[in-house]
Simulated assay, not measured.
Amino acid sequence: MKIDLHSHTRYSDGHLTPEELVLRAHNLQLDVLAITDHDTLAGLPVAHAMQATQKRKLTLIDGVEISTAWHGFDIHVVGLNVDTNNPALCRFLSQQGEIRRQRALKIGEKLVKCGFEGVAEKAFSLAGVGQVTRAHFARILVKDYGVSSMDTVFKKYLGKGKRAAVKAVWPEMQAAISHIQQAGGRAVLAHPAHYDMTAKWLRRLVEDFADSGGDAIETAFPGLNKDKQLLINELASTHQLLASAGSDFHFPSRWTELGRNLGIASQLTPVWHDWPLIAHP
Rank of each mutant, 00 (worst) to 15 (best):
D74K: 01
I75T: 10
H76G: 12
V77L: 00
V77S: 02
V77I: 08
V78T: 11
V78E: 09
V78N: 10
V78L: 04
V78M: 02
G79P: 09
G79Q: 01
L80Q: 02
L80M: 07
N81Q: 08
V82Y: 05
V82G: 01
D83L: 05
D83S: 06
T84N: 02
T84S: 09
N85G: 07
N86S: 01
N86I: 02
P87A: 14
P87V: 03
P87Y: 13
P87M: 11
A88M: 09
A88L: 03
A88D: 08
C90S: 12
C90W: 00
C90D: 13
C90Q: 05
R91D: 10
R91G: 14
F92K: 10
F92R: 04
L93R: 00
L93Q: 10
S94D: 08
Q95W: 02
Q95L: 02
Q95R: 04
Q96I: 08
Q96V: 10
Q96T: 05
G97S: 11
G97H: 03
E98M: 03
I99E: 04
R100H: 02
R100F: 05
R101H: 12
R101S: 04
R101W: 07
Q102I: 06
Q102T: 14
Q102R: 07
R103W: 06
R103Y: 06
A104K: 00
L105A: 03
K106H: 12
K106N: 08
K106T: 08
I107S: 02
I107D: 00
I107T: 00
I107L: 12
G108K: 04
G108F: 13
G108N: 00
E109H: 11
E109Y: 11
K110R: 14
L111V: 14
L111A: 09
C114T: 06
G115P: 15
G115Y: 13
G115W: 10
F116E: 02
F116P: 14
F116Y: 03
E117G: 06
E117K: 13
E117R: 15
E117H: 13
E117P: 14
G118A: 09
G118V: 12
V119E: 01
V119L: 07
V119N: 04
A120P: 14
A120F: 14
A120M: 12
E121K: 15
E121P: 14
K122I: 15
K122W: 15
K122L: 15
K122E: 00
K122Y: 15
A123M: 08
A123T: 14
A123F: 11
S125H: 14
S125C: 11
L126W: 13
A127D: 00
A127P: 13
G128Y: 02
G130W: 13
G130R: 04
G130V: 10
